[in-house]
């Protein structure tokens, strides 16, 4: 595990020294800024009629914009993690140094999660702005950000796995986007299936929409924690196995 730090640092370096990270962060903040502006504008004109929801809840839950952003940003963030190294051959230098597969995988994953958090960090400003107009329930805000972290961490883990099973960055991008979209569509199934059926239960269990609604209103359900915990750990585990498997190819 001592190989963790150098690889973690190098991954962050590689991410921020190339334009990719800055382009992604800019796009992300533009979309989120617009989103926030629309919400504030909406709440300002509608006044107290929407008393069942706070702007905070509307920002994190009950909105398609959040998923759209994740759908667009996660695949390009994870696509290069392993695919690029395998295509260019740098993986050979990396794996012949005294490093462990677990260390390499965790370091790369930690780096991409760090980047993801860095993207969200400026949105805390929105809370500060909202505070000008009224009180903010900070525990609800924390729960909302926990939701954002969990959903993102799960998607990033899936994305890294996709990058590990192909040498093509583009293919990794397409695969990741497909899986994220599939998860989302499965979640939408919650609204089209009849209540009480197995399909409905399955759909509502994986529905990122419902999850984020919960988190945004301050509900931290242990089922959600288990679901996203699995969504992080399982792909990580398979990625480690994939990295080990290259040696026997």
């Amino acid at each position: 595990m001592r190989s963790f730090w150098p690889i973690y640092k190098r991954e962050l370096f590689a991410f921020f020294v190339t334009p990719l990270a800055w382009v992604l962060i800019t796009v992300f903040l533009l979309v989120q800024g617009m989103h926030f502006f629309l919400l504030v504008d909406h709440f300002a004109s509608a006044g107290q009629q929407l008393s069942d929801q706070t702007p905070l809840q509307a920002f994190f839950g009950n909105t398609v914009l959040l998923y759209l952003v994740l759908f667009l940003l996660v695949p390009p963030m994870t696509m290069r993690l392993f695919a690029e190294e395998r295509r260019s051959g740098t993986i050979e230098s990396l794996m012949t140094a005294p490093v462990s597969s677990v260390g390499v995988v965790l370091a790369k994953y930690a780096a991409v999660v760090t980047t993801y958090l860095a993207m969200w960090l400026p949105t805390v400003l929105y809370l500060v702005i909202l505070r000008q107009t009224g009180d903010i329930d900070w525990s609800v805000a924390a729960s909302a950000y926990l939701g954002v972290l969990l959903v993102g961490a799960g998607y990033l883990s899936l994305g890294m796995l996709m990058s590990a099973i192909t040498k093509s960055q583009f293919l990794a991008l397409v695969l990741t986007a497909t899986v994220i979209l599939a998860l989302f569509i499965l979640g939408v199934g919650e609204f089209v299936t009849r209540e009480g059926t197995v399909m409905h239960d399955v759909c509502s269990h994986v529905s990122v929409w419902a999850h984020m609604n919960d988190f945004a209103s301050g509900v931290v359900d242990s089922r959600r924690l288990v679901f996203y915990g699995s969504l992080v750990v399982l792909p990580l585990f398979v990625t480690v196995r994939a990295v080990d498997a290259w040696r026997w190819g």
Binding site: R10, F13, A14, V17, T18, S88, G89, T90, E92, S93, T96
Partner: peptide, 14 residues
């Protein structure tokens, strides 16, 4: 062991 691979791949951005 110090190993130098055939194509001598490096990270180009560093």
């Amino acid at each position: 062991l110090g190993y130098m691979p055939e194509a001598v791949p490096h990270y180009p951005e560093m």
